[in-house]
Design a protein around this nucleic acid. Sequence first.
DNA 1: AGGCTAAGCGAAAGCGCTTTCGGTTGTCAA
DNA 2: TTGACAACCGAAAGCGCTTTCGCTTAGCCT
Lengths: 353, 353
Amino acid sequence: MGENALQRKPRRNQGMSIARLAEHLGLSEGTVSRALNGYPDVAGKTRERVIDAARTLGYSPSSAARRLARGVVETVGFVLPQRAGHFSDPFLAEMLDGVAMELADSDWDLIVAAVPDGHDEPEVIDRLARTGKVGGFILTRTRRKDARVDHLRELGLPFVVHGRTEDCADYAWLDIDNEKAFVDAVRYLVELGHRRIAHIGGDMSFNFAHFRHLGYRRAMEDAELPVPAGFVAEGIADGVAADEAMTAMLSLPAPPTAVVCVTDAVALGAMRAISGAGLRPGVDVSVIGYDGLPFGLAAHPPLTTMSQSSHRAGREVARMLLALIHGAEPANSQVLWEATLTKRASASPPPPH
Amino acid sequence: MGENALQRKPRRNQGMSIARLAEHLGLSEGTVSRALNGYPDVAGKTRERVIDAARTLGYSPSSAARRLARGVVETVGFVLPQRAGHFSDPFLAEMLDGVAMELADSDWDLIVAAVPDGHDEPEVIDRLARTGKVGGFILTRTRRKDARVDHLRELGLPFVVHGRTEDCADYAWLDIDNEKAFVDAVRYLVELGHRRIAHIGGDMSFNFAHFRHLGYRRAMEDAELPVPAGFVAEGIADGVAADEAMTAMLSLPAPPTAVVCVTDAVALGAMRAISGAGLRPGVDVSVIGYDGLPFGLAAHPPLTTMSQSSHRAGREVARMLLALIHGAEPANSQVLWEATLTKRASASPPPPH
DNA sequence: AGGCTAAGCGAAAGCGCTTTCGGTTGTCAA
DNA sequence: TTGACAACCGAAAGCGCTTTCGCTTAGCCT
């Protein structure tokens, strides 16, 4: 015996099985199975009888037996980003909901795996793959260089990535066009009349932070606006750090009149710093964030922000993975979505001065 | 064949199987299996040889075959709260991370299921249970009357609930003592010198909102303080609604000098209303929230709040479920944790006046 | 009527593992 | 030397399903 003392053979569904069902119907197991699985060589009447009986007796095939017999999995894996517990992520849950919903439409399931301390992501992926628990993977919170992607490439299992890595030509991904989003944000500020625009950026090892930064740079260049020293902060991950960074910017000889922030959390921190310096956010200094958090709406003034539905992204990513598993080409499964700008009061024309 | 065109029998792990491993070793499958599963009747040397070979050849048993042969599942289900996508929940992801981590320690897995539109929670639970995909369930975001709990009770599968329902004597749960948390919060305000304390409460069909409200009432009674008309708002779910509710309270003839809010999101909305009315949050009107959100720290003033780690709750809940599956008594698996009060600047003594 | 085809079903093998049972060795006491 | 007894391993039966193959029957044409 193993080390555990599970009561063996728990009669799952009061011992319902295809054998019992077949016996009950006076048919062979094979016929019942074919009827249930839509094979053409079973009489219409028989099929109905079988389906009816299955429903009334509450029979559903054991997924384990099915998997063993057919050799297909009907489950996909989602490896939670390491340290997910440390910065709580409001989008993960939404995205998971989308993924799980989309999968449910095809009667597929979702295994969510975390990376235990002392292990790393490839190990977790390996275990799931080797034991045959999943037929594909979904990844999110991608870094520019991402061990998970490299590992999955080698493994040969289908996978789709929410986000992208540095080199993303050969696998399937769904990403937001973060560069364009920040180009748009800066353009909007330029149209409002701003010329001194700063950027509070995040951890550049994350691809989204990298591209948001790039978008900021490109738009500034396009508008032929200078990016003075001190106008770009990097590696800002939360409101507190953002507060400090913004405070520093405000004490520059020629401080910015607007700032585009890598996330809403950062933007809210920046707004706080602006108030703290005795200035009015959205009046003296405009602020734009990214994420569309509900908190942004309740901020004062309400935060101008960019966003894309995580739930929809989850659905799409799941759909893509299913397609991949059914034979689609990864290189043809690369989707770039645009974020939408929600204009609120935190961004307005600069003070006349 | 079914309707799909999956390539059948994908050679999971380059066709590694216990048969190949056994052949490679010159042993029978049975012996290999027993060696790997720690049976005593296999020679020490043999066991080592087998384990070594398994590792170097990268063999792990197929979970489906294992499940079929042993009749045990090693997977638990987590049914996402319906409409999770609509109010994004920063804690769900954290909690899932905790659950998955704890399970991983025992080589168990977590299936996360969503409720597709047009279906309900019992259906989803049923499917997972009937197909034998899971050996137990974890629930969260419990309502006072919860269809999921009722259904699981009937089903007879082990489950543990994060939160409680109205009647919770006969199943396993882990909950925060929300009543005590709000008693403590009110007491803290009373000690600070407040006498006019209000409460902005949530949707009372959620158990946590119900008990937080109860705690507020009880503490007010204990302190022999009145709860004037208009001092309690119900059904407030977000910052915007909180803003309105707080604004209404501030226009009372004798407005509160402090308010305890059902969540941080609500508290932040209340703070905004206070500022909007020309008063200073944390000085003229004290505010206490619940959740320990990072945003609270970056608010101004930083939000006094109560919290409990979702990650730890996830771990604990998973541990409890595993125990249950191994035969523990549900009625002995009921745990009440206390929330801790994080004192920050949003709560201070009332203005002298 | 005879033969042929197609429709419908049963028999049986097999998916990859676990676990019981029994058989073969080697070891030790008598 | 025997016999008894462990220790160790192989054989084989299953777990619940799918799917191929082939057989029986009904239906049709000539």
